[in-house]
Write a protein that binds this DNA or RNA. Sequence first.
DNA 1: GCGGATCAC
DNA 2: TATGGTGATCCGC
Length: 618
Amino acid sequence: MSPVTEEQPQSDVVKEHGTLKYSLLGPSLTKPGQNGVDQQKVSEIIYEASKGSKYFNNEEARDKNLTQKIERISKKKEDLERLDLGHDRRKAEQFIDDLEVSRDLSQTIVHIDCDAFYAAVEELDKPELKDVPFSVGKGVLTTCNYHARKFGCRSGMAGFVAKKLCPQLIQIPLNFDKYAAKAQEVRKIIVDYDPRFESASIDEAYLNITEYCNTNNIEPAAAVEQLRKEVHEKTHITISAGIAANAKLAKICSNQNKPNGQYQLPNDRNAIMAFMRDLPTRKVNGVGRVFERELDAVGIKTCGDIYACRQYLSKLFGEKAFVFLTGCYLGLGRTSVQPAEEFERKSVGTESTFGEMSGPSAFHAQLRWTAEELEKDMVRAQFKGRTLCLKIKLHTYEVFTRQVVPQKPIFEADDLYKYALPMLVKLEQEFPRIKLRLMGLRCTHLVSMKKPDTLAFFGFKTKAPADVGEAISDSSLKRKAEEMESEKWETYDERLFEDAERLEREDELKDLESLGQEFDKRKHHGKEIVPNPKRTEAIEEEWWDCPICSRPQTPDEKEFNEHIDLCLSRQTIRDVVQESAVIGTNLSTLAPPKKMKLERGKSKPSSGDPKQRKLFFG
DNA sequence: GCGGATCAC
DNA sequence: TATGGTGATCCGC
């Protein structure tokens, strides 16, 4: 099969094949490397490969839903057009005028993005891959090189679909450590251009080079040329860059001449307005497949089209979207750039997909395993959670979440399991004979367990002496909140807990019976997993008692050592908690919440794999 | 505040 | 045969 190269506008693809096929093309359709690919042909192949699968059926249902939602929006706009919205129009215009006054053209912001990063790193190790189409990530493609993109392969695409598009595609597994090390090499270089650069993900960063250009008496474009050259020479990675007056524009610009190119949008109001006028909405960070369709339904295809709809936006999409869209129309964005470590983390979670699973005993064993995984992450991140959220995905790909507020912040597997189990049991009752393909747990409303020193080390402000009074009143507020939580607790259906405990006892018996039959068949990331290794391995072999927590552990030496490490870090957490109790400090006040500017779709400080993030920041 | 949905990477 | 994991935000209720 040869690459498909006929050009076809996206809008035609939608018209001729319907929204479902457009949706099936995936979220990265507009990403670089797809220009000149015949999306119609690609869409056809994906459709045929997917048709009839459970995934496909779910996508079909979602698309139907969305189509209805969009019809409602269209209808609503028609209704609004018949009304006199003079007031709304003037209000919108006033807001736009106010925004215009706030425009800041004094800064030079750069967004840099490594080209097909994981694939590029793999090519350095395996030069033989350079001239063949290949992807990184099995099952689902994490990324692929530009050869593979010519066939329509994209990140997020199922591996078997990619193989249909490109039978000679080579798929190689992920090597996170390698990418992390390479990313660190790149960062070592860019820190010279802005010591306070902001990592947006493993392979992306924002820099404010205003000062660098001033002190070195160099033009922004030349500075970025030099930066890119330096990165290429020292790391053998090519990067693309966007240069503009703010982060939003810089991000868009870095996609303009990808790969291995740069684009500068002058800090000039007319140039910016002209650039935005013709820019498809989808190019803006925060506008995805859904919002793109919703905007299209009211006649907005480019950012320039936004102005004509100014009086409707708020009523159609809400106040936040109105603010976001007017910002897009004007080409405004934040000019602040700050290290990712200074952003406050809001949740810690883990989830995993497995072969279809049914039956309470398997569910509960999986939950136990998930709880233990989350505990490890909570300990690593040094947080407790005030809220626990359970997520499941049915075999039909429908997703459900349920959350609970424990009596006190939790992080240990036993507690995570204890509080999650009733939610799971209730879901089992809600959906009789339910089958699962994913389970996850997440803690939110985090309470930091980091030592003050650690916080200071990472640049967090600790409470100044003058603020002690505030800290104390925070403590009493916290106590009040806890009282309220425990009242809520009492209203929680106790019978569920009794149910859950009874079921758990039954599970243990069943586990003994079905041991090695049910679980061992399941695969997890290509290797066998046993949801509850402790319980299963202990049947035939002896326990080893942990010298710290005294609890029986698996005799597997590696796992045993891991457990000891865990116990030691737990011990550290307990020390911190005790310490803070003694000095009367409310740990949760040490890292005051930072307000973030509205920037739709912004997620920070995330990276492709937040677990890997720790390699860079902690 | 909860649960669903969307988005980024 | 077969479609990921982590984190954030917004909206409707």
